[in-house]
Amino acid sequence: MRPAELSSRSGSAEDDVPGEEDRSLRDEVVDLARALPGPLRRLTVRSGDRAVEVEWATGTPPAAAPPVPVSGGLQAVASPPAEVPEPEEEPEVPEGTVAVRAPLVGTFYAAPSPGAEPFVRVGDEVEAGQTLGIVEAMKLMNPIVADSAGVVAEIRAGDAESVEYDQVLLLLRPPGGAR
């Protein structure tokens, strides 16, 4: 994402939010993003208890940027991380399978409670909308459901394992496909 794209993306639903303070914060974040060097991968802004997260595209560590004034007389300074670790190579999604990915960062649970039978096992046929697991984040249990019918080909996330956003949790094969 390039900072220039932010103005076109910042319009939509946020314009419905009343309050000069919200608009001011949005404008300051857009100005901050435009002042940062390098292409952005993700920019997250929360208004309650104010938090700003900036993530650069992999392999493009940002250079230091001058301080940018933000609300309350604070200054935000973009500085590069000491060392940018290489992303881990995630195994490819084999042809003929569909990846079920984590919709958020959290802890993956294969069963509804400790000691209970898992939601699914390798070889189980699943229907669209069926729960395949749970990702717990901030004390909220988020069900992971199948988007379409299939057969569980592989479960890549272990029970009670921390998972990242967009990480492949399971692989599904189309129903009736080769095993």
Rank of each mutant, 00 (worst) to 15 (best):
G59Q: 01
T60R: 15
A63P: 10
G59M: 13
V68T: 09
V52D: 06
G38Q: 02
L25Y: 00
P39L: 11
T44C: 03
S24D: 13
V68K: 04
D49M: 12
S47T: 15
R46A: 09
E55H: 06
W56C: 04
P69F: 10
A33M: 09
V29H: 00
A35M: 01
D31Q: 02
E28N: 05
P61F: 14
A33C: 11
E55Y: 01
P37F: 05
L32G: 01
T60D: 13
P66A: 15
P62K: 02
L40Q: 01
E53G: 11
R50M: 08
R46N: 15
R42C: 07
V45N: 03
L36N: 09
L43D: 03
T60C: 08
L25N: 09
T44L: 13
L36R: 04
P61N: 12
T44Y: 08
D22R: 15
E28D: 08
L43R: 05
W56S: 03
A65M: 09
D31K: 04
R41A: 05
V30A: 11
L36C: 12
G59E: 08
P69W: 07
A57R: 11
D31A: 14
E53A: 15
A35I: 07
A65R: 04
G59I: 13
V54C: 12
W56V: 05
P66N: 14
G48W: 07
P66C: 06
A35N: 11
A63W: 13
V54E: 06
G59F: 06
D22P: 06
R46G: 14
P39H: 01
L32W: 02
D22C: 11
R46L: 04
T44P: 00
D31T: 07
L40T: 05
A33F: 04
R26P: 03
L32K: 02
R42D: 15
A63G: 12
V54H: 06
S47L: 15
P61I: 12
E28V: 05
S47P: 10
P39N: 06
P66S: 15
